[in-house]
Design a protein around this nucleic acid. Structure first.
Lengths: 159, 159, 159, 159
DNA sequence: TTTT
DNA sequence: TTTT
């Protein structure tokens, strides 16, 4: 009710193959790391410098998760639109930590395959595979597509 | 097969009260103009300059349309996320024209009320009104919310 | 002074090779058309449907224009961030028309090459070509990079 | 060589007054926390639920920092466009931590005041204050606006 | 036609 | 710690 916007837009390359897990209620969760990099000329030295940023992407949306699982692999380029979410967790030593993730959930977010050369591994897709964006994001066009347990999905995740 | 993105993000003020119409199939369409403005200092004259840009926003999404109809009025500030769509039309003289609009449809887009002072006219809102973003956009959480006629909705619009 | 935002984000493919022209004051202007497409399943027929949207992109920023001129070609995929601008023009018959464009100017906007396989024509780029985004957009890091005539650049354009 | 995009768009309210500090080289750094919130109806219970997300915003851009320092206060609403950056730090106990921030630096990012009711404290602004977006972001229109030390600015920050 |  |  706040009148707020929380949006992240990334175009980058996967650092790992997508990892798939399921909640107790059966919902699929797909996650991976995504690299973006920035290059610029240092003003003083004149040298070319580069910074790579790693983002953790987590997909709760079933359709987008399916697309990620089927078509994304380490090294692939993808457009991700999601929201920032920071969660708290405690390590074995009892230390508290915070991790910020880019989340595509069932309400919002999008995943678009940017590479044209998908399918290198023979997992197909072909011309039918098509654009993931349309079928991911917020679509929810098939009734009841997400599992019971719904809204507290996040609490079930054992990262 | 596209791997494309078509996204517009606007924060601006309505130039008119939202206009509501319905397709033959009963779907609601809400539209209005939105002003954004830019100011800068002219390099040569040093004068302050301003340019106002007018955008035509068209909402096919029922929920976002409801929010717009209920809470938006001329002068209000709103965040709009939609996609660019250009349509062709012919004037009475037979001349062809093209008009580009920012569209929120049932698949994509969002509308967030930015003004806190909504409700000036007493049309309420209250705690129920709430934030439109969550309920608009792509939600479609209530089954079958859009009327038959569906995908060729656009062709029915008599602008 | 309005507190407004006017932003367009596109990922699409060029429909033509970039066209380069110069204002009387010597500034370079690069423009091209960009296609984005959307596919979805029609609810009634169940058929796969597709809509292609064409956008006109105009670059006033010298750096982004340089990158476009050197690396972009018909068919290439690019990420464009710009603002919407609608201009009025009159055809030979005296008819008035409006055209909406996505503009990258010296203040705002960005262009990022998305294709990895740039350089097909042997115009190089190599590993040095690098990311265009950093050097385009709003950088203006080299003093006085844009030509005299500055702020009324737009008025000089003979589209 | 990346062809990547790293962009965050937030509209939210400040949780604190902006904090201002300076690097050894004299550059100003302004930071604050920003809240965005999301509300939705729980599917199971039907109850209204809300999640508030807190973001840490850090501004290295001098102009945007000036605007933030002058016009932003706890509770104000602002549009922020920046990039995600995660930095590592070690607490007193020797424990390593990571913090993700939304950064506006001299190359990229934007800050737009959304509240119309700025100036509550009488710190003015008037017609001069105006919109920050134009003067922040990437402008760098006044030569040499940022202090020596430039590119490794980030390393000097003692958060 | 909006807003500051 | 914000806001509605």
């Amino acid at each position: 009710m706040a009148g707020s916007v929380n949006k992240v837009i990334l175009v980058g390359n996967l650092g790992i193959d997508p990892e798939v897990r399921h909640t107790q209620s059966g919902s699929k969760i797909v996650s991976f790391t995504l690299a973006t990099s920035d290059t610029w000329n240092d003003r003083q030295s004149g040298e070319r410098r580069e910074r790579t940023e790693w983002h953790r992407v987590v997909i709760f949306n079933e359709r987008a998760g399916d697309v990620a699982e089927r078509f994304l692999r380490k090294g692939r380029k993808v457009y991700i639109e999601g929201e920032l979410r920071t969660r708290k967790w405690t390590d074995q030593g009892g230390q508290e930590h915070y991790t910020t993730e880019v989340v595509i959930d069932r309400f919002r977010g999008e995943l678009v395959l940017i590479d044209s050369n998908r399918g290198e591994g023979g997992f197909g897709g072909g011309s039918s595979g098509g654009r993931s964006g349309g079928s991911s994001g917020n679509a929810n066009r098939n009734a009841g597509w997400d599992a019971p347990g719904g809204d507290d999905l996040d609490n079930e995740i054992p990262f």
